[in-house]
Write a protein that binds this DNA or RNA. Structure first.
Length: 428
RNA sequence: GGCAGGUUACCCAAGCGGCCAAAGGGAGCUGACUGUAAAUCAGUUGCGCAAGCUACGGGGGUUCGAAUCCCUCACCUGCCA
């Protein structure tokens, strides 16, 4: 921490980083954060086998708070994940208990990377299934349900809109807000938690807990939300060919993850540096100048991609993908790369196996997942969008011949400008 | 439980007996221009080299011919109880 950060209030720091959208009584929150360690919690529901870019914002926020001395609780929604937070796109399909349990474990492992669970201010991991599994329906309705007014619940934005939609809303999803409120109450009682954070779309759910605690405990607690991360061109942040930007390496390779960030628009990169990296104001300002003065150098994008990939996948993985990116997108001829450099670079890519017999290029493309099928492969070749070792392929029926294998082992397949895979000969 | 409406490709949505592998929009993909950026313009988006095959919630039927008509099942929604 630089000396300057000591004089900047954590809330102002977070605001500068674009991490603050709404909060309950801001002055009260400001005073609380200033007067001593605040216990804060943020929940993560197991709706998929991995966290994604949206959760990353929350994890970064928690990390900032922990670094400035506050106590952090990371909650995995073993219970809420079985109910489903209502969303505008319609009723969710319930996952099996086994699936939810499995995903809970995966999320736990992922969250652990972002916070410090040792030292003198350790973060703590909690699971809301721990206090809901044994809760009887009667106790739930008497002790918790009695504090909830139907009018308030129905007025919640998502609920109201879902009710007005053709699809409506099930009682299960409607009840979600109570479960989340209960979590906050429970954490307040157990650990003195007085701040809950979340995405701005969670505002209603956060307030559910704030109100429940006010009624049940006659005490005021805080809520703080982060803004929805946006892109300047109006499209959705975090959307890729494969879906979301997953943090799990088995769902999105570190290479693909790095590439996602390095392809950030000029118009967005400074904002993302503030939000997703821990760079100081001075560093960000310098990179901001670099974007204006030398946009083609893409320095800000490189720093962003490097920092975020390191945060999520670690130093070693990042070094590997940076080297791979430089090799594969560098100016030089791929054939001139030495064997070990090329080996490291292609290690990050999806691959297809080159059999003994002659094989069609389009089959390799399909096998490597670069195209959806042979037809799509033919189309890609016809469009001029396929190259092998940076040499454009023009014949849809082209075969890969052994002379194209670099170092006798690899051929770099490229579709479009930046989607890569490798065809590898079986060694032997 | 009753009545009404709905279920079309990644999403929205048109089509209501042949000219439908299915309009239009969104989104995606590719090319040109670039800086692995944006914007713009162009092409493209069921499987198959092709003949052809499989498709409009599932099943059955009418018809020379069905996404389109009939029956039935499933699911969704609304109103009423």
């Amino acid at each position: 921490m630089t000396t300057k950060e000591h004089v900047v209030h954590i809330l102002d720091e977070l605001r500068w980083r674009g991490l603050v959208a709404q909060s309950t009584d801001e002055q009260a929150l400001r005073d609380a954060l200033e007067s001593g360690p605040v216990t804060v919690y943020c929940g993560f529901d197991p709706t998929a086998p991995s966290l994604h870019h949206g959760h990353l914002v929350q994890l970064v926020l928690l990390r900032h708070l922990q670094r400035s001395g506050h106590r952090v609780l990371a909650l995995v929604g073993g219970a809420t994940g079985m109910i489903g937070d209502p969303r505008m796109s319609g009723e969710r399909v319930l996952n099996s208990k086994e699936t939810v349990a499995e995903w809970v474990e995966r999320l736990r492992a992922q969250i652990s990377r972002f916070l410090d669970f040792d030292g003198d201010n350790p973060a703590r991991m909690v699971n809301n299934l721990d206090w809901t599994a044994e809760l009887s329906a009667i106790d739930f309705l008497r002790d918790i349900g009695k504090h909830y007014r139907l009018g308030t619940m129905l007025a919640k934005d998502t609920v109201a809109r879902r009710l007005a939609s053709d699809e409506g809303i099930s009682f299960t999803e409607f009840s979600y807000q109570i479960l989340q409120g209960l979590d906050y109450l429970e954490l307040n009682r157990r650990y003195g938690c007085t701040l809950q954070t979340g995405g701005n779309d969670q505002w209603g759910n956060l307030l559910s807990g704030v109100e429940l605690i006010r009624k049940a405990e006659q005490t005021g607690v805080h809520a703080l939300t982060t803004p929805l991360i946006t892109k300047s061109d109006g499209t959705k942040f975090g959307k890729t060919e494969g879906g979301a930007v997953w943090l799990a390496p088995d769902m999105m390779t570190p290479y693909a993850f790095y590439q996602f960030w390095i392809n950030t628009d000029d118009a967005d990169v400074v904002g993302y540096l503030k939000t997703f990296t821990f760079r100081t104001r001075e560093e960000v300002e310098e990179l901001e100048r670099a974007v204006v003065e030398r946009p083609h150098a893409r320095e800000a994008q490189r720093v962003l991609a490097g920092d975020v990939t390191t945060l999520v996948h670690g130093r070693a993985a990042t070094d590997a993908v940076v080297a791979a990116s430089q090799a594969l997108f560098g100016r030089g001829d791929l054939a001139e790369l030495d064997e070990s450099t090329l080996a490291a670079a292609v290690a990050e890519l999806p691959r297809a196996v080159v059999p003994e017999e002659p094989v069609q290029v389009i089959d390799l493309l399909a096998e490597a997942g670069l195209v959806a099928g042979r037809g799509a492969g033919r189309r890609a070749v016809a469009e001029g969008g396929v190259s092998i070792n940076n040499v454009r392929v023009t014949d849809p029926d082209a075969l890969l011949d052994a002379s194209q294998l670099l170092h006798g082992r690899w051929a770099v397949l490229r579709r479009g400008k930046r989607t890569l895979a490798v065809a590898e000969a079986v060694s032997g």
